[in-house]
Amino acid sequence: MTDTRVRTALHWLLGAWMALVIAAAFFWAPAAAGFKGESSRIVFFHVPQAWVAVLAFCVNLVASLRYLRTRNPLDDARAAAAARLGLIFSLLATVTGSIFANVMWNSFWNWDPREVSIAILLLVYAAYFALREAVPDEERRASLAAAYAILAFVTMPFLVFVVPRIYWSLHPDTIIGATGKLKLQMESRMLQTLFGSLVGFTGLFFWLYTLDVRLARVRLARREREEE
């Protein structure tokens, strides 16, 4: 009962937080200099979406590793839930990035290294689900998907950090630069809104993730009862 109350309170808090973030992004934070019109405001949504896409990839990796150790079907459900959300958030990051690119450079897609990175991340997630759907046996599906997820994770640092460094990029500087130091030269209200949004989107991810995992837990419990 207490659990449900805490959960309900957290849901309301998340809703209020996200509403505040949206309001702050449009009315409180100023538009950044050097960008066309109000286009820089998309950063408050685009960056957190890209962050959640990467976070989901990490959660997917941890759940996949856990599955290979424990062979618990719930860990496989956790990995699949994280990948599903990762796919949605990387799609959102691609769309918001494309809108920004069109405003700034008059083209939705420029084959910029960052665009290539996110496109390949999308392909990896799509391939992960193509593999899951190709295996009818549940246990085999779980272990093959876990193996593929771990393999894909190994190539990601090369895609995210190495390839964009080889090619010249139009993309504005990322938050963590090539030296690994934080490169944040934003106006303080923009910075506060961005961090607020990062926290909000992370909360949103974990809320959706928990819902998916709870649903999987109920399905597994029902099947076990039917088998008995």
Partner: peptide, 10 residues
């Protein structure tokens, strides 16, 4: 489908 995303950086 599985190998193209993995070998693209390569």
């Amino acid at each position: 489908i599985l190998s193209v995303p993995l070998v693209l950086p390569l």
